[in-house]
Design a binder for these strands. Structure first.
Lengths: 124, 124
DNA sequence: CCGTATCCATAAGGATACTG
DNA sequence: CAGTATCCTTATGGATACGG
């Protein structure tokens, strides 16, 4: 509700962050379910329920909240088809697609850290 | 000036994460002050107080907690010199140094997203 | 100098029920 | 189908004071 313009949503608390560029990136992709959502969207458009099925541990509420933030940050588009039954699709914007190398380097490091077999292939 | 930036990365409650590799990476570097700390350590060892001065918005308590987690995850070493007055230095491990490309790609994306001038040059 | 200990406000986020 | 609305718990992390 309190959109101050520049970067992100709401201050978590009072202390000022440093505002460094890495924190900016984290503020966009660092949400609890955002990396997984983004990875799946790298493969193309997805409907809301399809997305939910791909993040089975997140509630619909959580998926919605994360999607809204991603949308606000300009990395995904929300496309509403005025049909019955309703259909809504999510897709990456160009900015969102530009996250691919970042996500991949994070995935690679994480895989090395944890051992590839322990990680979820769905997240690909 | 910039507002604080919410960064959530670690499991807050009980729900299972996906366990995907990106989340693993986020669980290591995603802490509130960790990226800044890691960036400064890329330039070499630092004493506790020096580190605190470089993250002026974080309390000593927060810096300590973040350092302990980084240590537990094996990305930094804590070196205690048994002197009076006490001296403690922190340095990256090899694993920590292997984060450099990840941090850099995140920094680059964040800089592009926010505009370089808005970001903190201290954070490199 | 390098931290801990304690207290406490708050916001993240889970569960569940409901709706256009 | 694609979400909201509501309630409620608990982890996060800020402030402050103290200690080896």
């Amino acid at each position: 509700m309190n959109d101050s313009i520049p970067i992100q949503t709401r201050p978590r608390r009072r202390a000022e962050r440093t505002g460094c560029a890495v924190e900016v990136t984290l503020s966009v992709i660092g949400g609890l379910w955002k990396p997984v959502i983004l990875f799946h969207l790298l493969n193309g458009k997805l409907r809301f329920n399809a997305l939910c099925r791909m993040v089975p541990n997140a509630t619909a509420r959580m998926v919605t909240l994360q999607l809204r933030e991603l949308e606000r940050d300009g990395v995904i588009n929300r496309i509403v088809y005025p049909e019955v039954p309703p259909r809504v699709e999510y897709e990456l914007t160009d900015l969102g697609r530009s996250l691919e190398p970042v996500l991949l380097s994070m995935r690679n490091w994480g895989a090395g850290f944890a051992g590839i077999e322990q990680t979820d292939p769905n997240c690909q």
